[in-house]
Write a protein that binds this DNA or RNA. Structure first.
Lengths: 321, 321
DNA sequence: GGGCTTCCATATCTTGAAAGTATCAGGATG
DNA sequence: CATCCTGATACTTTCAAGATATGGAAGCCC
């Protein structure tokens, strides 16, 4: 059975007349007769009753036509869906990210992306940077946002671009002695108990901290993966929280943030994706990134050029601005 | 686009290899290549990525294949549904009936029919006999059950068979003077107020009553279309209800039924359908009728033979007994 | 009722597209 | 570097869909 048979049967049912249906189909009447006969033979049932007043579907014909119409709709729908998927209008984007990225750089990209591509299913997974990197390499993520550029085996197959520079800042309870100060000396911090992200989950940050603090302070430090937890612990006077400057976005009355002197530069937040990922959705995501963060976009394009990644998948997005 | 293209694309996605997919399809590799190429050209998107490690669907291909599979399922489903409809396993049967028929002869047919053809949608409409007849002639019913064989224009296009013989019986309140009697003389009835079905809705019954009772009694009678209403009115001592003997099935403590002497034969209950109705569901219904009411079945077959209605639509039903 | 029209089916021929055969080009592999 | 594997291309073949011509049945009109 071919789609042609369905089209012919539907036309015949519509016109109730072999001659007119054939004309509407742009063929002569005899081939329509033979095709309908062949269809009836294959189905094994008479689908049309030929009377002198016209051609009418039998009970079997009615049942057949109902599903035949749906079958044809699925066929055209398949082509339409393919086009939409190719343009990245539908599909899925799986982003793995470090929690602090959700505070500052991610919203400026995600909001416009959602607006431009509302039918793309976003899958957001918070995870420590190394985990996101390996998930990206394994193919279970499309984009990874973590602190520090990915390293290790496979990292060269990724395109990585810095998307945010952070200094280390301290966060203390509003009642803390430091609370009144805009800045605090690094040597003052180790007098208090530190609250830091777990060294094993964020090794790049841990490496920086090891340069700054005595081993004893870090061993005794409270660790918390989530930045909100770090701030929360500081708020209840558990110690002095340390985090990227982005955590200033956490707007709580019961804490104060202090610059650290001399300033401590943290490894940049980086966004990575597979260099040869053909996903049109990813291409659209990068396009939105370019539009909304010019600097990041320029760096991205330079990186792509340097890596000689073809721009074949860089689809022009139909932004609804 | 033809169903062939969908089948080929699905096979290619399954085998991830042009040669093996072609072998599975029973064709050579080159035609598969050309057909896939033609499909991609028609859809306007590359659907498969040809790599050295195999052939994989693109994002567009994935979207296409998902709906292509459904389209093919609809196609085969259309053929299956046509067969089921032709065998009368699915579809619809619209029965118009006089309320009293629901008491006696209908249940003995409907229950086995439901059991044998659970997927047929039954549409039951209570209506006075003449209304059912005209609805049947107009095509908005498939079966009509009414008192008296249909008459008037068009009745000759119907097949009609008697399915029940009823005598007229009286129904009175348990407190009524007649309540103790098993039978009551016809002349005794007109002393009381009669409760009858409306003459205009059941003219054949009305004709019988006009022979039996003085015009005055009938004019003053209470009329009620539904047999349950007639019995209910009798129960509350509104008068003496008159109805077919089938109403004895109404099992109420507060009423008594009395035979009428001499016995008054009512017009038979008849079942009618269009002589040339091709509906397989109707054929199955008649088949169930034959199996469950041998007498009626014999009369039906004699009628069909007499009317020279071809037995073409008399499908053998797959009873699940 | 005979001729006429209408309409679908059948027979035969034509054509076009799908399938087959042979071969080529590109990339991986040893 | 030669070889193998795989898909694409060129060309031929074949088969089925479509076109043309015609037949037969049913309804219609004068």
């Amino acid at each position: 059975m071919e789609a042609r048979h369905l089209r012919y049967a539907l036309a015949l049912a519509e016109h109730q007349h072999f001659g007119r249906a054939a004309a509407a189909l742009g063929i002569a009447q005899p081939p329509l007769s033979t095709q309908i006969a062949a269809l009836e033979k294959e189905v094994g049932e008479r689908l049309f009753e030929r009377t002198s007043r016209g051609v009418f579907p039998t009970a079997a014909g009615d049942a057949f036509l109902a599903r035949a119409e749906r079958a044809l709709q699925e066929m055209t729908g398949a082509a339409v869906d393919a086009g939409r998927a190719a343009r990245g209008e539908t599909g899925r984007l799986r982003i793995g990210f470090i929690g602090s990225a959700l505070l500052d750089p991610l919203p400026t990209v995600l909001a416009p992306f959602r607006r431009a591509h509302p039918e793309v299913r976003l899958s957001m997974t918070e995870a420590p940077s190394p985990e996101s990197t390996s998930a990206l390499l394994a193919g279970s993520l499309d984009v990874a946002v973590g602190r520090g550029a990915p390293t290790g085996p496979g990292a060269e197959t990724l395109v990585t671009v810095s998307i945010k520079t952070d200094d280390l800042v301290a966060v203390v309870a509003a009642t803390h002695p430091f609370a009144g100060q805009r800045q605090v000396g690094i040597e003052q911090l180790s007098g208090d108990r530190l609250i830091i992200s777990p060294p094993e989950s964020e090794p790049r940050v841990a490496a920086v901290l090891r340069e700054l603090f005595p081993a004893r302070s870090l061993e005794e430090a409270i660790s918390a993966r989530d930045v909100h937890t770090i701030v929360g612990l500081a708020a209840c006077e558990a110690g002095v929280g340390l985090g990227p400057s982005g955590i200033r976005r956490i707007d709580r009355r019961d804490v104060r943030f202090c610059r650290i002197t001399p300033a401590v530069r943290l490894p940049d937040l980086h966004l990575s994706f597979r260099a040869h990922d053909p996903s049109p959705v990813l291409a659209n995501f990068l396009q939105v990134l370019r539009h909304n963060c010019a600097q990041v976009g320029n760096r991205l394009d330079r990186t792509l050029t340097a890596m000689r990644v073809p721009a074949s998948s860089q689809v022009v997005i139909p932004t609804t601005e």
